[in-house]
Computed example of a mutant assay.
Amino acid sequence: MKKVNKSILSALATIAILGCGVASAFSCGQAIVQTGDTELEVNSKCGQPINSNFVVISPWGVAKKSTYDIGQGKFYQILIFKDDKLVNIQNGSRH
């Protein structure tokens, strides 16, 4: 019983931490963008980002941070690329 309770608490803590505006995938039109996609794949699915720059972000070091507008009433998607691979997806403010 204690093992189950610890597992449940651990899972809930993980969800709480990751649920703070971080996702591993989102839809862009009819396509799904997910971590591991290349920047070219994301751009072919969503178009060009509205903003993009290189930043230092822990734990990735120097990475490319790009913001995508995926439509009225939806959250901006803030994507972090490291070595041309999507490593992190965050929800920005609502459009």
Rank of each mutant, 00 (worst) to 15 (best):
V62F: 08
L18W: 06
Q90S: 15
I80D: 01
A25R: 15
H95P: 04
V56K: 13
A25W: 14
I8W: 07
D84E: 11
V62A: 13
T38V: 06
V4C: 03
N5D: 12
E41W: 03
D37V: 00
V22I: 15
M1P: 14
D37G: 00
P59T: 10
R94V: 05
P59R: 13
I17C: 03
D83N: 08
K6Q: 09
A63L: 06
P49R: 05
N88I: 07
I89G: 00
A16I: 04
D84R: 04
K45N: 00
I15V: 01
S66M: 06
G71E: 06
N88L: 14
V55I: 15
G29F: 01
V22C: 11
I32F: 15
I50K: 04
E39K: 06
Q30H: 13
A31Y: 14
K6W: 15
A23C: 12
Q34V: 00
S44N: 00
K65L: 15
Y76G: 06
I70P: 03
L79P: 01
I32T: 15
L9R: 09
L79K: 01
S10Q: 09
Q90F: 14
L79Q: 02
N53F: 14
L12P: 08
G19Q: 02
N53G: 15
V87H: 06
G92T: 07
V33D: 01
G92W: 05
F54A: 08
F81I: 03
D84Q: 02
I50L: 04
F54G: 12
S58F: 08
F81S: 04
S10K: 10
I70Q: 03
H95L: 10
L40T: 04
A31H: 06
P59Q: 04
V42H: 00
K2V: 13
Q77R: 11
G73N: 11
I8G: 06
K6L: 12
N5L: 09
S93H: 15
G73T: 02
N53M: 15
V56W: 11
G61W: 04
G71H: 10
F81L: 05
D83M: 05
N91V: 09
I89W: 05
V62N: 10
V33E: 02
N51Q: 14
S10V: 09
K2S: 12
S44R: 00
S44Q: 00
V62E: 15
A25H: 14
T67P: 09
I89P: 03
A23Q: 15
S10N: 12
A11C: 13
R94F: 02
T14H: 00
Q48P: 10
L12A: 14
V87R: 01
F81M: 07
L9S: 10
E39R: 08
I70T: 00
T67A: 07
K2D: 13
K74H: 14
